[in-house]
């Protein structure tokens, strides 16, 4: 999938052609454009930054400016086959409630997030006693938008509490896809396909 970030590429590959999709926090619409042009998907977007919405509109992508913490409520139940939340869960005011909303408006959901239990993070905390600044999370603690640090194990626990089913999962270190073994140590970020 032409030039997409690896987590987005994996999502694009697994959205069946002809489905209805919402990309929550769609940015300038890179994923939506690929879904539309290469997978014939009816993709809609939600994005908080008006300049990014503008770019989406200029690409012919239907995108609503909105705050995912609040405005997902505007969509009816089962409005989409898939709701996509890429690298945004950790910025949500209430990630647990956002997950509820995703699986209300979408029958299934793709969720990707950075794993804060990656070994580099652990080392940074353990040896340097500093909040990690890594290639994948390059922003210092005081200006990061990541307000809810989550690990693969934490996420699995949340899914268990909510009774959410995991259809599939993928783990990455940089551009490289990893197996599930030791994912909570080895994965820089994870992608899950979830259903109710």
């Amino acid at each position: 999938m032409s030039g997409l970030r690896p987590d987005l590429a994996v999502i694009a590959r697994h959205v069946p052609p002809g489905s209805r999709v919402i990309d929550v926090g769609c940015g300038e619409g890179e994923l939506m454009a690929v879904l539309r042009d290469e997978r014939h998907v009816d993709a809609r977007g939600m994005e908080i930054d008006p300049e990014a919405v503008e770019k989406c509109v200029a690409r012919g992508l239907s995108t609503v400016q909105g705050d995912a913490n609040r405005d997902l409520a505007d969509y009816p139940d089962d409005a989409f086959d898939y709701a996509i939340l890429s690298q945004t869960l950790q910025t949500a005011e209430r990630p647990d409630l956002m997950l509820d909303e995703l699986l209300r408006i979408g029958r299934k959901a793709f969720v990707s997030f950075p794993n804060f239990a990656h070994w580099r993070m652990r080392l940074s905390l353990l040896w340097r006693g500093r909040m990690p600044v890594t290639r994948h999370l390059p922003v210092s603690w005081y200006e990061t938008q990541n307000i809810h640090h989550v690990t693969v194990t934490d996420f699995l626990e949340l899914l268990r509490l909510k009774g959410v089913r995991i259809e599939k999962s993928w783990f990455f270190s940089g551009e490289r896809e990893l197996g599930a073994f030791g994912a909570n140590w080895r994965a820089e970020y994870a992608v899950y396909l979830l259903s109710r």
Binding site: R20, P50, V53, E54, C56, L61, S62, V64, Q65, A79
Partner: peptide, 8 residues
Amino acid sequence: AAPVSFVE
């Protein structure tokens, strides 16, 4: 499910 864009 109408295709809609909105920006403030």
